[in-house]
Design a protein around this nucleic acid. Structure first.
Length: 377
DNA sequence: AACACGGGGGC
DNA sequence: GCCCCAGTGTT
């Protein structure tokens, strides 16, 4: 047992006794069940950093192909620092949380310009860099630099909250702090990087959110939730409120050469820096047509006529549900001007632009809207 | 402490 | 449809 099994208020502040047998059992399992990933085995801080940023809130299976493409295009931090932001965002398209790509690019330039191309080795120094929080700093420091620092991510939270059968809701800062302390107390001095990865592998493959495979768990004998039969109840999470619905309208504007108008979204905020069909969110009670008139006048200073609806799509974001409708439009007056960067894109150029999923879906479907002017023979 | 920030995979 | 993912930054 790692800590007293009762979770009464009296025992809440009792520090767990680190049991060396725990890390030994975990590392043995790790050595005998190697999980293959493109970044596994590398000690290059650039590679570890890239993989860890991509893995933030993103599954291993999703990251693998992105990681390979990214490393092929930017083999070292100097190549990334020298690249235009648009290229970075294009490689990131579809991976989501685009602030990660912006911070990645910023950090690469910082490393090259201010740190002679070298990553700092300490978790504390790493955490000062953009896009690197406590988790990522500890992951890089332990894996690439063999520093004895603990990680705490979604996987580790699940494993540890089961290990001590934690009945409290985990989003509270006090509880999270308690889990960090527990993670640190369990961390062995030897092979901290492998140990951290072993803990995350365990959470990903054995100690899963639903129906954990406790029969094959290498640390089952240490697990209080297993002993109590409460593993499916841990960790305790706060229930989420229903998502609000957001309506948005997009304009399909074509010029004489049949190119369509794209705009670049503001660098910060939702889908920041990506390209998009011009348009925006509908205000309360506002019709889609009125929304297009308003937003295109505001963004680009142009007057349009809104014609027929060409496509509609739905997308669920973290905190709202988007209903996007796209309308064929006609340019009545003016030419795109103002703060918003815009471009007329020919069909064959569309793949070069970085678009969010909803816009990409609409643009990809365009070919079917009307017969091609030039059929293949 | 609460919220903004994407998209996909598994059931 | 719902959950949740190798989290971070802002307010």
């Amino acid at each position: 047992m790692l800590i007293p099994s009762d979770n009464s208020a009296d025992s809440r502040n009792v520090q767990p006794v680190p049991d060396p047998a725990f890390s030994v059992a975990l590392l043995n399992w790790y050595d005998q069940n190697p999980a293959q990933m493109p970044w596994r085995g590398s000690r290059d801080p650039y590679c570890i950093w890239l993989s860890e940023v991509m893995l933030q809130q993103t599954r291993v299976a999703t990251v693998e192909s992105y990681y390979r493409r990214f490393l092929e295009r930017f083999p070292a931090v100097e190549a990334l620092a020298a690249a235009p932001m648009d290229d970075v965002l294009k490689l990131w398209e579809g991976l989501g949380y685009y602030a990660r790509a912006r911070n990645l690019h910023r950090l690469a330039r910082q490393i090259v310009n201010d740190h002679a191309g070298r990553f700092p080795a300490s978790a504390k120094a790493l955490q000062q860099l953009p896009g690197i929080g406590r988790y990522t700093a500890a992951a890089i420091a332990s894996i690439a630099f063999d520093q004895t620092v603990a990680v705490l991510d979604g996987n580790v939270i699940r494993v540890l909250s089961r290990l001590i059968d934690l009945p409290e809701e985990i989003s509270q800062m006090r509880v999270e702090q308690q889990l960090w302390t527990l993670a640190e107390s369990l961390l062995p001095a030897e092979r901290p990087g492998d140990y951290n990865q072993a803990l995350m592998d365990l959470g990903r493959t054995i100690c899963t959110p639903r129906e954990p495979d406790c029969r094959h768990c290498p640390v089952q004998s240490f697990c209080q939730a297993f002993a109590q039969g409460t593993q499916s109840l841990r960790p305790v999470k706060k229930q989420k409120s229903p998502l609000p619905n957001v309506r948005a309208a997009a304009a399909i504007l074509r010029d004489a050469k049949d190119r369509i108008l794209l705009v670049q979204r503001p660098a910060e905020g939702l889908l920041g820096g990506l390209w998009a069909l011009p348009g925006g969110r509908c205000e309360a009670e506002e019709t889609y047509t009125d929304c297009l008139h308003r937003s295109l006048k505001q963004m680009l200073g142009i007057e349009i006529r809104v014609a027929e609806e060409m496509a509609a799509t739905e997308q669920t974001f973290t905190h709202f549900r988007l209903r996007l409708r796209a309308f064929a439009c006609e340019l009545l007056a003016g030419t795109p001007t103002g703060e918003t960067r815009s471009a007329w894109a020919a069909a064959e150029e569309l793949p070069r632009y970085s678009l969010g999923k909803a816009d990409r879906k609409i643009v990809d479907g365009m070919e079917q809207w009307q017969p091609r002017l030039f059929e293949e023979p």
